[in-house]
């Protein structure tokens, strides 16, 4: 029990004192995951919408694969990206391994299928409702896709948040491709893993509390945002 008590004390101390080392780790975590989620959304949302809208051979296969990839183990993604970026790999010359960029890439690979799969479900339901009306107006396919993304924005915001949740919480991928290098690629989850293995449970728990608080804050902001821009819907 004293562990938990001192953990809260440590966390509180770290936050109140504005510890620069902690700040650095938190900032990098946010940069990596927010960056990855933005890029994954730019790819995943239209991809999900396209799979929902178009009838083409192999469409159901893609849908199944996307759903399966939602549960992709982060360590496996880390390993694959590691192999691609390592000196001997096809992108080795870029020298990206053990940099934040590599971590962003790994998280994009991790999160894009999740966003695409969930977006597909949201968009498919809307397309069923909208299709005939949009075609009746004479709406082009590209325009229809944009309409669905825009009109589904509140549901899709939740989809993006789910992606962010997965990105900020994972350890395996960023650990392998980032290397958990202090002042360079250390993020909250890898720092927690390290402190636990070093036996500094208090600091690890403190970081954990910050991580959870951050997650709640992001979702809280999204909820308030949704509520203010969409009166009558979020209730």
């Amino acid at each position: 029990m004293s562990d938990i008590g001192s953990a809260f004390a440590t966390a509180f101390a770290l936050i109140v004192q504005g510890d620069t080392h902690l700040g650095e780790i938190v900032l990098l975590s946010l940069q990596v995951s927010v960056g990855a989620v933005i890029i994954a959304s730019v790819i995943g949302l239209p991809l999900g919408a396209a799979v929902a809208m178009f009838r083409f051979p192999g469409r159901s296969v893609i849908a199944v694969v996307l759903n399966a990839l939602m549960g992709l183990p982060p360590v496996v993604v880390g390993l694959i990206v590691y192999l691609l970026l390592s000196r001997a790999g096809p992108f080795g010359t870029l020298g990206l391994l053990f940099t934040p960029t590599a971590m962003v890439i790994a998280q994009i690979v991790l999160v894009t299928p999740l966003i695409a799969a969930l977006a597909r479900q949201v968009i498919e339901d809307m397309w069923t409702e909208y299709e005939e009306q949009l075609r009746s107006f004479g709406t082009s396919t590209g325009r229809s896709l944009r309409v669905l993304l825009w009109d589904g924005r509140y549901s899709l915001l939740i989809v993006v948040l789910a992606g962010f949740g997965r990105a900020i919480a994972e350890v395996g991928a960023v650990m392998i491709v980032g290397g958990n290098i202090d002042h360079a690629t250390r993020v909250m989850t890898t720092a927690i893993a390290l402190e636990v293995s070093k036996g500094d449970i208090a600091l690890a728990l403190g970081l954990g509390i910050v991580l959870v608080a951050l997650s709640i804050a992001v979702n809280g902001v999204a909820f308030v945002l949704r509520r203010t821009v969409a009166p009558g819907r979020a209730r």
Binding site: E132, Q133, S136, F137, T139, R143, V147
Partner: peptide, 26 residues
Amino acid sequence: QAMVFQRPVMLRRSAAANIHFPLSIR
């Protein structure tokens, strides 16, 4: 041409914007 369906399909926007949309399409 135009068509009105048995169950009205409303875009998730204001009443005015619902009319504005097809006007811009056409």
